[in-house]
Design a binder for these strands. Structure first.
Length: 586
RNA sequence: GCCGCCGUGGCUUAGCGGUAUAGCGGCUGAUUCGUAAUCAGCAGGUCGAGGGUUCAAAUCCCUCCGGCGGCUCCA
C-alpha cells in the first residue's frame, strides 16, 4: 500500500501500519466532510484508534445526532469519489500558527503551542481541506475503500473535564469491505454477549429505579456468587488467609484518621446516628486495621492476612454506571496483609500468584498496570518511592510485563492493577494490589521486633475478583452465559417427552437432587423442542436430560449439551461424570 | 457530573396530535407429541413522573426521574 510521508516522499507502508494509515486518512476525510456541511466547525484531535478512528469537533451551537451520520457519510463518499490528491507541506512555527489562525482553528493553534519550539510543523492538504498532521497518509482520497461512522459522543478537549466538551464522531475503516463486514458482524455477536442482556435472560440480577447503581442479585445470580465465594474461600484458606467481617457503618472519626474523609469524601455516603456523624464504608481497610490493632503483634506473626468479603458503597457519577461493571454498591473479595519491610517482595509475589491462579482457572487474559502517586494523596515522597519500587521489584522479579499509569494510584499508596476485557474489548480493572505505608502510621499500628522495639507494619490492600459484581459481569460475557457446570445456576434439567415416562423422569430428577446437583424437572405438556429451546437458549443449562419411552425401555438417559450434541448413558454414569466436573470445577 | 440519544403490558416492539399494535412469555382448553417455535381462546398497558400548549397529547414544549453510547472517574 502506497502512502505519502510529511516530507513529500511516497513509499510502501509497512504491513502492520496500513490499518492505522487508512483510519487516519478516514478521519481527515470525515473532517473535510464535516467542514463542508458545517463551515464554522473547528477541529481538535482526530486520531486512528485500535478499533477505528474519531475526530473531536467543536460545532459551535450546532447539535449532531446519530441520524446526521448518514448525511456525513454521504458527504465523505463524495470526497472519496472526487479522488483528491493528498499533499503534505511543512511550515515553520510562526507561519503554521498564522495559517491555523486564518482558518479559524483555535484547537490546532493551542496544539502548536504545546509542541516543542523550532519543530517544523507538517500539514496535509486534500482539496480545500488542510489538517495539521504528522502523517503518513493515503495518497488519494479515492483509495479509502471501506469505512463506516459508528456513533457520536461527547469528549472533553484534552481529556480534561474542566475544558469544553466537544462532539466526537466515531467511525471505523478497513482495507476492504469484507473486513468491514466482518467487523460489524463481530460487534453484533458481542452485543449478544452483553451481560445485561444475558443477566435478564437468565434471571441473574436486576436493578430498580429506587436504587440506581445498586444491584439486586436474583436467586440464579446468587447461586453463581456463592459458588464463586466457595471457591475463593477454599483458595484463601489454603494460602493462610483468615476471614473477618467488619461493620458497614462507622463513626466519621475513623474515616478522618484513615484519610478517607480528606481524600475520598466525594464518593462517600454519610449519615447521622445519635447526633454523631457516621459514614458508610467505601473501602474495607479501616475495618481490617481495627481488627489488627485490637491486639499486640510480634514480628514472628507477620505477615498477617485478613480477608473480608466486604460490601462497600461509593457514590459514583451517574453517567458512569454500567450494568454490573460499574455500580454504586459492590462486594470486594478484599484482604489486608500486614507485614515487615523485608517481607514486601515475597508477599506481593505470593498475592500475584494467587490472582494469576484464579484468572487462569477462568481462561482470562489480563494485562498489568502500575499506578503511581496521584496529586491528591498523603505521605512522604520517600515512602511513596519505596512503595512504588517495592511493586516494581516484585513485577520485575516475576518477569511480568506491565505499563505505568502515572498519577493513578490510591491516595494512600501505589498499586498494581489487573485489567480484564469485556466482550466488546473494553477493559475493566478487576484485581488490584496496593502497597500502603500510610494507614499503619495514621492508626499507629505496631508490632514488636526481635529487639523488643515497636515498628510500624506495612500494609497490602488487595482484591482478586475485584468486585464480585464486575467479575460476574465479565464471566457472563466471557462464557456468553454458558457458565461451567460448577457455576451454573441450574446444572441439569430433566425434560419429559411425554407423560408416559413421567415416573422415570421423576426418579432421575430425585436421584440428581439427592446427590446435591442443582436440578430441575420440566414435566409440562409441551413438545420436547419447546422445552429445549427454553433450557438451552434462555436458561443455558449445561445438561439437558431427555426422558421418553426409549430411555425408560433402555433404563438409560439421553444427555443433550449446550452445543446441541446428544449422548446416551446410564444414570449412574452421568451422575459420576457431573459430580466429578463440579468437584474439580472444570 | 458533562455531550448526544432513548423511555409504550414480564420481554421485544408498532403508532409520533383524534385517548393504544403485534409477537414472545403467562393463564385456560385441545393436541400426548423425540431434540430451538402445534392450534384456539383469555388476561395483562393511568404509553417513566409532574407541569404546560391544544377542543383533543403516547404523539408538541418544559422540568424531573431512569436507561443507553461515550467523556471524565473507577473495583
Amino acid at each position: 500500500m502506497k502512502v505519502i510521508y510529511s516530507d513529500g516522499k511516497t513509499g510502501e507502508c509497512p504491513k502492520e501500519d496500513e490499518l492505522h494509515v487508512i483510519r487516519h486518512t478516514a478521519a481527515h476525510i470525515l473532517a473535510q466532510a464535516v467542514k463542508r456541511l458545517y463551515p464554522t466547525a473547528s477541529f481538535a484531535y482526530g486520531p486512528a484508534t485500535e478499533k477505528g478512528f474519531y475526530y473531536d469537533i467543536d460545532l459551535g451551537d450546532a447539535k449532531l445526532s446519530e441520524t446526521d451520520l448518514e448525511t456525513i457519510e454521504t458527504e465523505m463518499r463524495k470526497v472519496i469519489k472526487e479522488n483528491l490528491q493528498i499533499k503534505p507541506f511543512i511550515l515553520p512555527r510562526e507561519e503554521a500558527l498564522k495559517l491555523m489562525k486564518e482558518r479559524n482553528e483555535p484547537y490546532k493553534v493551542e496544539h502548536i503551542a504545546d509542541l516543542a519550539e523550532n519543530e517544523p510543523i507538517s500539514f496535509y492538504q486534500q482539496g480545500e481541506y488542510i489538517d495539521m498532521c504528522t502523517g503518513p497518509h493515503l495518497t488519494y482520497t479515492g483509495t479509502l475503500k471501506a469505512f463506516k461512522l459508528t456513533y457520536i459522543s461527547g469528549a472533553y478537549w484534552k481529556n480534561d473535564c474542566k475544558n469544553k466538551m466537544l462532539t466526537r464522531i466515531n467511525g471505523t475503516a478497513f482495507a476492504t469491505a469484507k473486513e468491514l463486514d466482518e467487523f460489524i458482524k463481530l460487534q453484533e455477536e458481542a452485543e449478544r454477549r452483553d451481560h445485561r442482556k444475558i443477566g435478564k435472560d437468565m434471571q441473574l440480577f436486576m436493578f430498580s429505579d429506587e436504587g440506581p447503581g445498586f444491584p439486586f442479585f436474583l436467586p440464579n445470580g446468587m447461586t453463581i456468587k456463592n459458588s464463586l465465594l466457595e471457591y475463593w474461600r477454599e483458595i484463601h484458606r489454603q494460602n493462610g488467609y483468615q476471614e473477618i467481617s467488619t461493620p458497614l457503618i462507622m463513626n466519621r472519626r475513623l474515616w478522618e484518621t484513615s484519610g478517607h474523609w480528606d481524600h475520598y469524601k466525594d464518593n462517600m455516603y454519610a449519615t447521622e446516628i445519635d447526633d454523631e456523624p457516621y459514614c458508610i464504608k467505601p473501602m474495607n481497610c479501616p475495618g481490617a486495621v481495627m481488627v489488627y490493632s485490637t491486639q499486640p503483634h510480634s514480628y514472628r506473626e507477620l505477615p498477617i492476612r485478613l480477608a473480608e468479603i466486604g460490601t462497600v458503597h461509593r457514590h459514583e457519577l451517574r453517567g458512569t454506571l454500567h450494568g454490573l461493571f460499574r455500580v454504586r454498591c459492590f462486594t470486594q473479595d478484599d484482604a489486608h496483609l500486614f507485614m515487615r519491610k523485608d517481607q514486601i517482595a515475597e508477599t506481593i509475589t505470593d498475592v500475584v500468584r494467587i490472582i494469576n491462579e484464579v484468572y487462569t482457572k477462568f481462561g482470562f487474559e489480563y494485562y498489568l498496570e502500575l499506578s503511581t502517586r496521584p496529586e491528591d494523596s498523603m505521605g512522604s515522597d520517600e515512602d511513596w518511592e519505596a512503595a512504588t519500587n517495592g511493586l516494581k521489584d516484585a513485577l520485575n522479579k516475576m518477569n511480568l510485563p506491565y505499563t505505568i499509569n502515572e498519577g493513578d494510584g490510591a491516595f494512600y499508596g501505589p498499586k498494581i492493577d489487573f485489567h480484564l476485557k469485556d466482550c466488546l474489548g473494553r477493559t475493566w480493572q478487576c484485581g488490584t494490589i496496593q502497597l500502603d505505608f500510610q494507614m499503619p502510621l495514621n492508626f499507629d499500628l505496631t508490632y514488636v521486633d526481635e529487639n523488643d522495639d515497636r515498628q510500624h507494619p506495612i500494609m497490602i490492600h488487595r482484591v482478586c475478583f475485584g468486585s464480585i459484581e464486575r467479575f460476574i459481569g465479565i464471566l457472563t460475557e466471557h462464557y456468553a452465559g454458558k457458565f461451567p457446570v460448577w457455576l451454573s445456576p441450574v446444572q441439569a434439567k430433566v425434560l419429559l417427552v411425554s407423560k408416559k415416562s413421567e415416573e422415570y423422569a421423576g426418579y432421575i430428577y430425585k436421584m440428581l437432587k439427592d446427590a446435591n446437583i442443582r436440578c430441575e424437572l420440566d414435566n409440562r405438556n409441551e413438545k420436547i423442542g419447546y422445552m429445549i429451546r427454553q433450557a438451552q437458549y434462555t436458561e443455558r443449562v449445561p445438561y439437558m436430560i431427555i426422558i421418553g419411552e426409549k430411555e425408560l425401555e433402555n433404563q438409560n438417559i439421553s444427555i443433550r449439551t449446550r452445543d446441541s450434541k446428544t449422548v446416551s448413558m446410564s444414570p449412574e454414569e452421568f451422575l459420576e461424570k457431573i459430580t466429578t466436573e463440579i468437584r474439580d470445577r472444570v
